[in-house]
Amino acid sequence: MRILITGQHGQVSQELQQRLHGLGELIVLGRDQLDLANAPLIREQVRAHCPDLIINAAAHTAVDLAESEPDAAFAINAIAPGILAEEAKALGIPLIHYSTDYVFDGSKTAPYTENDTPAPLGIYGQSKLAGEQAIAAVGGQYLILRTSWVYSSHGKNFLLTMQRLLQEKPQMRIVGDQIGAPTWAGTIANSTRALIERWQAGNAGDWGVYHLTAQGETSWFGFAEAIGDALRDAGKPCAELEAIPSSAYPTPAKRPLNSRLDCSRLQQQWQVSQPQWQDALHECLAEQH
């Protein structure tokens, strides 16, 4: 099997490259080979490689920057996924695409299900929703996997930032009123592999939109506390933490207060379940050593 992965250095792509080993030939196209803002090049590359499966792990993920460069965000997050869907359908192959909790406004009090109506607060969420809609409009075999609060040992993310800052500063103030599930990119890659294996074995569930996050919930403050506990356990310095409301930490893009996603449909349809966020964090930290 030939698996084409867009994106090379992103958190999810790096974990996919490790964890899809042995499933087939991985064709990993980074920004140098595949500029997702270049529509004709996308078609050209897909046709040149003629894959059996496309995984779109590339995205414009700079949430605040997207507010000031909407055209770039929409080119990569909205237009490119639609083109990938068209090429996948033409080849008669599946497309796996990753989306986000930011398609919701966070006003619901319970976890969001796939049946809830999206209402993104900012450009990033709007562009990711437009990408979902573009894929759905093409149809064919596709999985849109919405995840949240992604971190890993690679790139830029909350875990790596906190590990650094908590050791550098005496005190830190962290937002405590946004609730979600920190999701390790390794978890996303492991689940993606399980989904591919089910499809290959003829045990595929329905195609469509699914939620895929770690189980459980916490705030950014709670996530920072867990990272701090791990530092202390390792005998390292750690800042004193204070919880603050989102209003005390304004950002160009507004964040949803409730980012919790109900992932039960993925378990029911595909028999793929996720670990508790604390367990996945421990696994990620263990791999750092």
Results as ranks from 00 to 15, higher is better:
129 L>V: 03
195 L>E: 09
3 I>C: 04
44 E>R: 11
120 P>A: 00
171 Q>R: 11
163 Q>K: 11
205 G>C: 04
106 G>P: 05
9 H>F: 02
5 I>D: 01
230 A>R: 15
202 G>F: 14
113 T>A: 06
136 A>N: 03
286 A>E: 12
60 H>A: 12
170 P>A: 15
53 L>K: 08
268 Q>A: 15
181 A>V: 06
118 P>M: 05
143 L>W: 14
93 I>R: 13
288 Q>M: 15
133 Q>A: 09
8 Q>S: 13
197 E>T: 09
199 W>N: 08
197 E>N: 02
12 V>M: 06
27 I>L: 14
275 P>K: 05
16 L>H: 05
65 L>P: 00
141 Q>G: 01
217 E>A: 15
39 A>D: 12
130 A>H: 11
106 G>F: 13
280 A>E: 12
152 S>R: 08
242 E>N: 06
90 A>C: 04
93 I>D: 09
57 A>V: 10
6 T>I: 04
228 G>T: 03
244 I>Q: 09
120 P>N: 00
109 T>S: 15
77 N>E: 12
67 E>C: 05
181 A>G: 01
52 D>C: 07
243 A>L: 04
163 Q>Y: 00
91 L>E: 09
200 Q>G: 03
17 Q>R: 13
275 P>F: 11
9 H>L: 06
157 N>F: 01
118 P>A: 02
134 A>K: 07
151 Y>S: 08
73 A>R: 14
142 Y>I: 02
250 P>A: 04
116 D>H: 10
156 K>P: 00
17 Q>V: 15
22 G>I: 07
142 Y>C: 01
140 G>L: 09
103 V>K: 00
84 L>C: 09
95 L>V: 06
170 P>E: 14
164 R>M: 12
80 A>R: 03
35 D>Q: 11
119 A>M: 03
165 L>D: 08
175 V>L: 06
144 I>V: 14
89 K>M: 08
215 Q>F: 01
97 H>V: 00
66 A>Q: 05
118 P>L: 03
206 D>I: 00
